[in-house]
Design a protein around this nucleic acid. Structure first.
Length: 550
RNA sequence: GGCCCUGUGGUCAAGCGGUCAAGACACCGCCCUUUCACGGCGGUAACCCGAGUUCGAUUCUCGGCAGGGUCACCA
């Protein structure tokens, strides 16, 4: 069999040689061992937490060691194309602080190792496919969908391993004449790898994984498709060609790729490429609605979509920090030791990555977020909040116009060495401060149970009667204390605790009524400060309003 | 079903033959406090099961079991 002739017959249009490409994309001018990583999204535009998690690993690894992180668009499947998806991907990641050094960008492609859209690399893949055909390592296959389905059905009925291999690979040994005949009949073949693997007794292969250590798996024996009918490569083949030619050193991807590793190993070997360092990350999982059961991370789970966090207004830094806590288990320890250091300073390592799937924990995210937001100055919080509102809650924008007013609100109780940690996300922030806006102010909680309806009325009456907006905070509170004492409430909670039968309740319950009137809730920052921000008129009005409705 | 990955408290997760089995989140209690928070202190709670190796296994080996992944001209 003259394989060279077959190659020329199949790829008459390919005039470049693999050597040409090797010369075109020389080894990178970087110190030895410098990582080059890549993200290869398909242009569906859908990015989920898992993608971000992986992208974060790429980004950290590259940027922490002076390496390069590039974006390659894996658009070899036209069915998956979504208009504007590339921009979406870039924007989504950008929001969370993930930036690329090379590859696809919104201003066109950057870098000398392009093109960075796989759909623009057709000739390159075909060139390497041609080489494999010429070496007898790949061949054209004309089997129809129906034939393949029939083979599969038979394999299933006989409980054989499904796939095209061994004697099932009917086009493996077509003669040139037969190929020519198919071609003349107008058929377009796919190109399949002529696998060297042994279907009867697959040998063991060993591949290094930076996260999991040495992986041992049975060799591939499937004649996988490497070039599809329309001339573009499958993921497997593109992965081998691109990651080699783009001089990628670390292939970071989810563990769902683990099972196709033998294919990639054979492809790299057949092409004469050095196998890259693989880094198979654990998949993120979730808890399902009712039960606390584990469940796989489906693309449809809304809380896994990245935009979910943007919509809720989680701060990008918070998401980054949260991800870091599940990326490297020693992160939290580091954070405690370095409370004010930029999280980018954290020495991230692949070795410290977990190999088992982490369950996404929103409670933990919230906790991390509180710690992150408490350190952000009010002015920045303001910009963050308004920025979020602009796209996700524009109707409240007018309320946020008075910057000085909002700034005071955002800084409530945040000074001192024990700042409040009230804020979790932009949407939650707005809800939290919404009582400052009359349109949103409403009674959300009940009067403390220790206080009767009747007493509540008396409290409000007395409060209003003695109210002086210019009172300093201690004076203000003494008045509440006095007023409470007169109605039979303990001036100090401790007194009440010691002798609960002597009192109806304590001053906390009394002030609880006032708090409810002012903010409509049982919980809030300091009421006196709130009143100062609210102003005398509105303060009195709210007291009066609640009194009236009792 | 085949192959592969994973298996420590509710969740995340240290551990790498000998520990009273860290820590964080959540939960509960107490303290602080004018409320709510914040903070501090304390508490409940775990090595999937069974063999084997060993003086000794959470840690090593094997076998189960469980969860997940994958078996496309999708990535």
């Amino acid at each position: 069999m003259d394989y060279q002739k077959l190659a020329d017959l199949l790829f008459p249009d390919i005039d470049k040689t693999p050597e040409d490409y090797e010369a075109m994309y020389p080894a990178r001018d970087l110190p030895a061992g410098t990582p080059v990583t890549r993200l290869g999204p398909s242009p569906t535009g859908f990015i989920h937490l898992g993608n971000l998690y992986g992208a974060f690993v790429d980004e950290r690894l590259a940027h922490q060691h002076g390496g390069l992180f590039l974006l390659r668009i894996e658009d070899t499947d036209d069915k998956r194309f979504v208009e504007g998806a590339v921009e979406t991907v870039i924007d989504s990641l950008d929001y969370f602080g993930i930036h690329f050094d090379e590859g696809a960008s919104k201003e066109g492609e950057i870098g000398d190792y392009g093109p960075y859209h796989q759909s623009d690399r057709g000739p390159l893949y075909r060139c390497f496919a041609k080489k494999l055909v010429a070496e007898g390592k790949a061949y054209p296959c004309f089997m129809t969908e129906e034939e393949i389905a029939a083979i599969r059905a038979e394999q299933e009925s006989q409980k054989l391993t499904p796939g095209i291999y061994g004697s099932f690979a009917k086009c493996r040994d077509l003669t040139i004449e037969e190929v020519q005949a198919h071609l003349d009949a107008g058929e377009t073949p796919v190109i399949r790898l002529r696998s060297q693997g042994n279907p009867e007794e697959p040998a063991q292969i060993h591949v290094q994984d930076a996260i999991r250590g040495e992986l041992t798996m049975p060799e591939n024996f499937q004649d996988v498709v490497i070039i599809k009918t329309m001339g573009l490569p499958t993921y497997h083949f593109a992965h081998a060609c691109d990651d080699h030619l783009m001089r990628v050193t670390h292939v970071i991807r989810g563990e769902e790729w683990l099972s196709s590793l033998p294919i990639h190993y054979e492809l790299f070997t057949a092409l004469g490429f050095e196998v890259p360092m693989y880094c198979h990350t654990a998949v993120l999982m979730k808890v399902d609605e009712n039960g606390n059961k584990r469940k796989l991370s489906k693309r449809k789970d809304p809380e896994l979509a990245l935009d979910f966090y943007k919509e809720l207004g989680y701060h990008p830094l918070a998401v980054r920090e949260y991800l870091l806590t599940i990326l490297n288990s020693n992160y939290e320890e580091w954070r405690m030791a370095n409370p004010d250091t930029d999280c980018d300073e954290f020495p991230f390592t692949l070795e410290k990555m977990s190999t088992s799937g982490a369950l996404f924990d929103i409670a933990k995210l919230n906790d991390v977020s509180k710690d992150v937001l408490v350190k952000i100055p009010a002015k920045e919080l303001y910009d963050f909040l308004t920025g979020w509102a602009k796209t996700y809650k524009p109707e409240v924008l007018p309320l946020l116009e008075d910057e000085d007013y909002i700034l005071k609100i955002l800084d409530l109780g945040r000074s001192g060495n024990k700042p409040r940690k009230d804020f979790v996300s932009a949407s939650q922030m707005f809800d939290f401060i919404s009582y400052f806006f009359d349109d949103y102010y409403k009674l959300e909680d009940e009067i403390p149970e220790q206080v009767s309806q009747e007493d509540a009325a008396k409290i409000l009456d007395a409060y209003l009667a003695t109210y002086d907006h210019s009172d300093e905070q201690p004076v203000w509170f003494d008045k509440i204390r006095t007023l409470g004492t007169e109605l039979g409430y303990a001036a100090k909670p401790k007194d009440f605790k010691k002798n609960p039968d002597d009192y109806k309740g304590h001053v906390g319950h009394v002030s609880g009524v006032i708090r409810l009137a002012i903010v409509g809730r049982a919980s809030s920052p300091d009421v006196w400060e709130i009143q100062q921000i609210l102003g005398e008129e509105r303060t009195k009005a709210r007291i009066a309003k609640m009194r009236k409705n009792l």
